[in-house]
């Protein structure tokens, strides 16, 4: 158990070091920082001085170590485009993305599990087949088209919901939230559905197939024979045993939600980290790109690690047998 945890943590650190190397290489090889910081009228002495100041005259490994130290302290330098510290910009944008991701994940999980159970219990019903059919289209539709479609129906035609921005936000000591105003909540609906739809279909399909598997087991038949109510059999006995893979997939999808928020945020001009990243790519704003990369990898690796450990904690069978790392 302890060996497993230690190995997983070690692997996670390796991944972060590799990603850090990629982020660091971006600074070193994409464009010359000296060029970016000094103007046209510069002397060789200026260049040398700045080179020394930035530590660029030191060996690669030392520079990489310095970079890692700075990154660990949240210091990613100054955005080429906005001229402000990257960490500050990221902190300002993070609440928008996190709130959007949280609402989407909630939507995807509740509706996904609910519909999955429903379609599994009534597997041959018309509604179930309809839901499954629609979900197939939902998987094939690119995210941005779903967003545009929703904007067209609910903003352009019906004029019920706003098509861009966060609405009014309340500042709670550095954390801006849209949860407390009506316009903020209304602005959340369309982006959250757009972002969560794919994950919802995924969870739904997974729950359905797992439920169908479990419902065939002997202990379900036995529970029925004991005369337990349908509801108790379906939820207490069957659903509970499908949750292990569901938790794994949902956890991993949490990372995907944050990544796919880039697309949703662009469609809805949602002022989050994803929109920041896309703008950074368009203008080749390396510090922002590198910081986003590091931030999101810490999140991904963390989620992966937690899911793995959680998996281990939930399923006792894994503890007995020698489980594989992946």
């Amino acid at each position: 158990m302890l060996a497993f945890i230690l190995r997983r943590i070690f692997q996670s650190i390796i991944v972060l070091l590799v990603v850090g190397l990629v982020a660091f290489s971006m600074f070193t090889f994409v464009g010359d920082p000296i060029d970016n910081m000094l103007g046209q009228e510069r002397t060789q002495a200026d260049i040398e001085r700045l080179r020394q100041q930035l530590g660029l005259d030191q060996p690669f490994v030392v520079q990489y170590w310095n970079f890692l130290q700075n990154a660990a302290q949240g210091n990613f330098g100054i955005s080429y485009r906005q001229g402000r510290p990257v960490a500050e910009i990221l902190m300002e944008r993070a609440p928008a993305t996190l709130e959007l991701a949280a609402v989407s994940a909630f939507f995807a999980m509740t509706l996904g599990i609910g519909l999955g159970v429903f379609t599994a219990i009534r597997r041959d019903g018309i509604e179930s087949n309809l839901i499954m059919g629609v979900s197939l289209i939902g998987v094939s539709l690119p995210t941005f088209l779903i967003g545009i479609l929703l904007i067209y129906v609910f903003s352009v035609e019906l004029d019920w919901l706003p098509s861009f921005g966060r609405g009014e936000v309340v500042d709670l000591g550095g954390w801006t939230t849209g949860f407390l105003t009506t316009s903020g909540l209304k602005a959340l609906i369309l982006p959250a559905i757009t972002l969560g739809l794919y994950q919802m279909t995924l969870i739904m399909r997974l729950v359905r197939s797992e439920m169908l598997e479990v419902l065939r087991q002997d202990y379900i038949r036995f529970a029925r024979a004991r005369g337990l109510r349908e509801r108790a059999v379906n939820f207490r006995h069957a659903l509970k045993n499908t949750l292990v893979p569901v938790i794994t997939v949902t956890g991993l999808q949490l990372g995907a939600i944050i990544a796919f928020a880039i697309i949703t945020e662009t469609v809805f001009q949602w002022p989050g980290v994803g929109l920041l990243f896309i703008n950074a790519i368009q203008f080749v704003d390396i510090p922002v790109m590198a910081a986003y990369l590091m931030l999101i990898s810490v999140m991904f690796v963390g989620i992966n690690l937690i899911v793995d450990l959680l998996y281990f904690a939930i399923d006792p069978r894994l503890r007995v047998g020698k489980g594989k790392g992946h």
Binding site: V30, G255, I278
Partner: peptide
């Protein structure tokens, strides 16, 4: 494995950004 940790669309964006910078 490391690359698989990240959604491929994100990897593609990143590579596009770096290549564009180069």
């Amino acid at each position: 494995d490391i690359q698989l940790t990240f959604p491929s669309i994100l990897v593609a964006m990143l590579i596009f950004g770096i290549a564009k910078g180069v």
